[in-house]
Design a protein around this nucleic acid. Structure first.
Ligand code: ZN
Ligand code: ZN
Length: 319
DNA sequence: ACTTTCGGACGTTCAATCGA
DNA sequence: CGATTGAACGTCCGAAAGTG
């Protein structure tokens, strides 16, 4: 199948993949009720993104749950660095709106899939996820390491006429017509140490809005660690998930969780003419003995020691 | 229940085309 | 000639079919 490039141009949305950056183990019973912190209006010179709130103090709701038991660290620590407070991403789910620390979903809230540059022949024929190692992890588990080798990429056809291209889009003219006015007010780059956690949609904090657009009085506080901004209470702290304050159907704001209609594809009938399966594989498969593949699609080793599957391809793309 | 197969969504590459 | 476009080509998700 992989050789057939005839694809319909219409890309229909597929089920959203599980959210990445899932902690190794997480249980819903670790969810804490949100604590609340007092907020103050943004004192700085930078405009807050719409919907962002600027807390002055951060505190862990439950000192028992703190990982940092350093007596020098106050239980309710003044956090002088400017931050925006938003609900954290819920493990296993995509955040209801963009969140740093979660790989940026596409505009429709979908996480981009990462592919290896070249799958081995075994994985390619099985249409399964490969990795950059040779032998790849899947072949190792399937005792196919001896036959694990790169496939040969076809040479692209040349001389194909393509017809006229669409008009090239000009560099955005002064009147950035496409940019919604609210977004245009957001500084393109926040100052160092600032990062928008979430931009809750309007009405997300139901009843929490202040009068005349004034900052809300209280918002739930969630410990969350951003890699660029050390946070005193970060690792190991279970993250409660934001629920709408009252009467709101929870996941409705999450575009990822938009209810998918039951599969529209018709039933697939198996064809007996199977050319790919001529190279028979042994009877092992990815998820075997590994429980389930992790959210990223990386196979998880039984021992739970992820074999550093992604050797982080060189940032420069060949060209 | 587990394994295998594979339809099709979607990511990547790169030749054709465009515009300066 | 560099930038952009967009289709060819590729990976692999996820569900159905097969198997014991
Ligand atoms: Zn492989
Ligand atoms: Zn392999």
């Amino acid at each position: 199948m992989s050789a057939n490039g005839e694809q319909a141009a219409a890309h229909k949305q597929q089920q959203s993949p599980p959210a990445p950056m899932q902690p190794p183990s997480q249980s819903s019973e670790h969810i804490h009720p949100p604590a609340f912190v007092q907020l103050a209006p943004h004192p700085g010179a930078y405009a807050l993104p719409p919907g962002a709130f600027s807390p002055v103090f951060f505190g862990h709701p439950n000192p028992e749950g703190m990982v940092n038991h350093d007596p020098n660290v106050p239980q309710y620590m003044p956090y002088t660095q400017m931050m925006y407070v938003y609900p954290p991403p819920i493990p296993g789910q995509a955040p209801p709106f963009p969140h740093p620390g979660v790989p940026q979903p596409t505009a429709v809230g979908k996480q981009k899939r990462k592919q290896v540059k070249m799958a081995c022949t075994n994985c390619a024929s099985a249409c399964k996820k490969c990795d950059d190692g040779r032998p790849c992890q899947r072949c190792i588990r399937s005792n196919l390491a001896s036959t694990c080798k790169d496939g040969v990429r076809k040479e692209r056809k040349r001389g194909i006429k393509r017809g006229p291209y669409k008009r090239r889009n000009k560099p955005p003219s002064d009147d950035e017509a496409d940019v919604p006015r609210e977004q245009a007010s957001i500084p393109p780059t926040l100052p160092e140490g600032y990062f928008p956690y979430f931009l809750p949609p309007p009405g997300y904090f139901q009843g929490a809005e202040g009068q005349n657009g004034a900052p809300p009085v209280q918002v739930p506080f969630y410990p969350y660690h951003h890699p660029l901004t050390p946070f005193p209470y970060s690792a190991g702290i279970p993250m409660p998930f934001m629920q709408p304050l009252s009467g709101q159907p929870g996941p409705s704001h999450n575009p990822i969780e938009a209810p998918q209609p039951p599969s529209a594809k018709g039933k697939r009938q198996r064809s007996s003419t199977d050319e790919l399966s001529t190279s028979k594989k042994s009877k092992t498969d990815d998820q075997r003995a590994s429980g389930t593949p992790d959210s990223e699609g990386n196979d998880v080793t039984p021992s739970g020691t992820e074999p550093a599957a992604q050797p982080s391809e060189p940032p420069s793309s060949d060209r």
